[in-house]
Simulated scan of single mutants.
Amino acid sequence: MKIVIVGSGVIGLSTALYLALEGFRIKLITRNPQEATSWSAGGMLAPFSEGLEGKLFEFSYESLRMYPEYIKLVEEVSRLKIDFWRDGVFRVVLKGEEGLIKKAEQYREKGYSVEFLERMDYYSEEVVSIIRYADEGWVDVEHLMDALLLAMEKLSVSMEIDEVVKVELRNDRVERLNGLRGDYTADYYIFCTGAWTKELFDIPIYPIKGQAIKVKAKPVNVVHYSTISYIIPRSRYTYVGATSEDVAFLGGNTVEGLSALCANAIRIVPTIKSAEVISTLYGFRPGTPDEKPIFAIGTNYSILTGHYRNGILHAPITASIAKSLIKDKIKSVYFDYFSPERF
């Protein structure tokens, strides 16, 4: 069975990995493997810190539990080591945010591991409390993406550099894809096109730009997640993010965005003010009206998109349900929960 996957972000690559390991012939079409927003993501695996609820929380927590085996699989196939931390995440509570403590207590009442930590001296006066969500963690997305791309080579996944500009549909069936360089046909098609999905399908996806900074210092050893800043330690540097801007596909870093990132990080950990800036980056999250994914199924295709702020977290479960759909003909309940029909 020949499968074409459009998109080379973490969702597309993970789906290609799972299906290639099952023996399917995979062609992956991408405009540029380095263009995917996944490269600029913070890599937090933090459904509790995000304050998720309902089916979105269930989906996210299930994927979080899959992460150790997912990382192990990617490492085994690629033969690359991926930095993956399971040390929990510190949810920073600022003045006026006491509702976050109530939320944490609700999670704890449901049996999840939640700790309330004493405020340390290196925090600013704006920080009133720290909640530690022990089940959370983070991954170095650059390591992960490098490993996934190498895994494509190891598994002989064909990668075509092209831009798909039209999907020829008839009676809910894809007949072919039109690219700038050629046309493509397959037995089955999977679209993992993130913020660019609306260019091909009438689905309410829109880009939310995020800017971030890499700094040389390491002021903290654990992710500090707050409503105004993410401070994410990696082995080589610290990632500071991220803005949230509804500016369509306006590229580049801005003075305003970078200034806000720096100021907000200093509001959490003042010592970061002297950190040396290594580089800046930006990407486009695939936003949806209710901030939940959008999964759609046609006769011979599926669309897996709209993961918004949690694409890295959602990679293993999304790839898994795609594999189950194609290999075992099992349709996950999440296709119903996240159907575009809800709009």
Results as ranks from 00 to 15, higher is better:
I278C: 02
L52W: 13
S279H: 01
E125P: 05
L148C: 06
I317F: 05
I268G: 07
Y308F: 15
Y67N: 02
E76P: 00
K214I: 04
K81P: 01
E163K: 11
L21H: 04
I71N: 03
L56V: 12
N178T: 12
R31A: 10
P270W: 09
L250K: 15
E276L: 13
Y225H: 14
A186K: 05
M152N: 10
Y67Q: 08
F338T: 05
I11P: 03
Y225K: 14
I208D: 01
D121F: 10
V269L: 15
R86K: 14
V174E: 03
L155R: 01
R170N: 12
P207Y: 07
G23C: 04
K110H: 09
E118K: 13
N171V: 00
T193R: 01
S14G: 08
A265W: 06
I190A: 04
Y18N: 12
F90C: 10
L100I: 13
L21C: 03
T193W: 04
A260P: 00
K331R: 14
T227H: 10
V128S: 12
T318G: 09
L144Y: 05
R173H: 04
P219M: 11
T15V: 02
G99C: 02
I326L: 11
R132T: 07
L56D: 06
L281K: 08
E58A: 12
E109A: 13
T299R: 15
D87W: 05
F249A: 07
V333K: 15
R119T: 15
V127P: 09
T30E: 11
E76K: 15
I71L: 07
D146H: 11
K198C: 00
L200M: 07
L150A: 10
D202A: 10
S324Y: 00
M152E: 05
E58Y: 00
